[in-house]
Design a protein around this nucleic acid. Structure first.
Lengths: 231, 231
DNA sequence: GTGATATTTTGATCGAAATCAAAATACGGT
DNA sequence: ACCGTATTTTGATTTCGATCAAAATATCAC
């Protein structure tokens, strides 16, 4: 568990890429209206259909964004990790949330009201550019997701996920070990698979000697060989 | 076939929602660097991997955006119709296209270079807001697509599509007739189905009396009853 | 109109992944 | 360390939709 003492909102805002280059006085203005939100593992932050009043920044913890079907099945769209933000897109539309957000662990979030963002956009071109870049990246990522869901098999999506999880620093290594950031069930759902199927594919890859599974630690003895399985 | 004579670029730019509210002198500046592109049915506009130098507006005709898997299977992401634009998102990232674009019919397009858009963003806050709104809408739509692919059956996706195709003006009618804008194969792919499966589901809905199929004309005797099938 | 091509439908079969069920493990709190 | 809960694995079965193949329609250029 982390330190839960009082935090300096400005410090955290400064760490977000979106706010890089913003002058201290602008950061201060934004910080003034930014609210801290602490939530415990399992807490719902918002539900699909709730109105959106701004966007969120994850200072620490993990937030799960998901759809739920009428029949109650859940599909995880994304897991937001420390230092990332979410809800920017819907903020620009006058529509309610299309996903629900739930804490996967104890979290500290910041909520930035949309009004202050709109005001900042009035004044700063560079900020607008950053915001456009951020939204464009999200759109791009969603396109790649759609491609994966449509064109790749479950096994290929899992391999792609594992390769994606390799830390920047280990990119060039032959052998790497990665640590799954959330439960296998959540990852399975994120990849549009049942956890049973996910488990079976991991086993299959393990039998082939392509990975070594030890709980949440996945060893990849030969990254290139795993990559080759994508064809 | 349409008139292929010379067109007034400014007139067409004025019709795009994105450029609403832009002063005539700004429109003129943009028009000066905007290029006309005419292409015939089947022509490729660009391929995945090509660099992106701006975005496109469809003046008339239909453009299909699609992924192709290594095995050659194709997945249609979207069909862009008259009056709509595409490629804005990727323009803000320094990445090549992730989709390919092909004309489904003879088309007239406008290509707006990114430099002029960036220049305009420097000067006009309102333009930035419009752009953000447009990107946000695309993101939103992609999220709904992902939801559909993940949570809905093929039949439900088809019903959703048919209901979505009902013209604004007919929204409140009990009985409507819609006209499929492209071939059934393209729609099937857009909905992540094979055309065989698409055909069978249409037949099934027809047998249930929920729709009446006559080539590209689909009659819906009772919209509410079809909607009820989504549960 | 007529022939050639493209699209759509129909039939038979197959397969990837889901579902249902239950056992086995791991894990957090006291 | 131990108990209760959550997670993961394994097994048996089912199903939705894909694939392969071929026939039937529709469409378009000439």
């Amino acid at each position: 568990m982390r330190d839960h003492g009082p935090i300096n909102i400005q410090t955290h805002l400064n760490r977000i890429a979106l706010f890089n280059g913003l002058g201290p006085e602008h950061i201060a203005t934004i910080a003034k209206v930014t609210r801290e939100i602490r939530c415990k593992k399992g807490d719902m932050l918002f539900y699909r259909g709730d109105p959106c009043s701004g966007f969120h920044i994850v200072v620490y913890g993990q937030i799960k964004l998901s759809f739920t079907s009428p029949q109650g099945t859940e599909k995880v769209v994304e897991v937001i990790e420390q230092g990332h933000s979410f809800g920017e897109a819907i903020m620009f539309l006058d529509k309610p949330y299309v996903v629900s957000a739930q804490a996967l662990s104890d979290c500290l979030l910041l909520h930035v009201p949309k009004a202050v963002i709109f005001a900042e956009l009035e004044q700063d071109h560079e900020f607008g550019r950053k915001m456009l870049g951020g939204l464009a990246m999200r759109t791009h990522q969603l396109m790649l997701d759609v491609e994966g869901y449509s064109l790749l098999s479950g096994k290929q999506r899992i391999i792609g996920y594992l390769l994606h999880e390799i830390p920047e620093a280990d990119q060039d290594k032959t052998r790497v070990v990665i640590e799954l950031p959330v439960t296998k069930g959540v990852i399975a759902s994120r990849l549009n698979l049942t956890q049973e199927h996910f488990s079976r594919i991991l086993h299959e890859l393990s039998d082939l000697g392509l990975i070594e599974v030890d709980g949440k630690r996945i060893g990849i003895p030969n990254v290139a060989r795993l990559q080759a399985q994508l064809q």
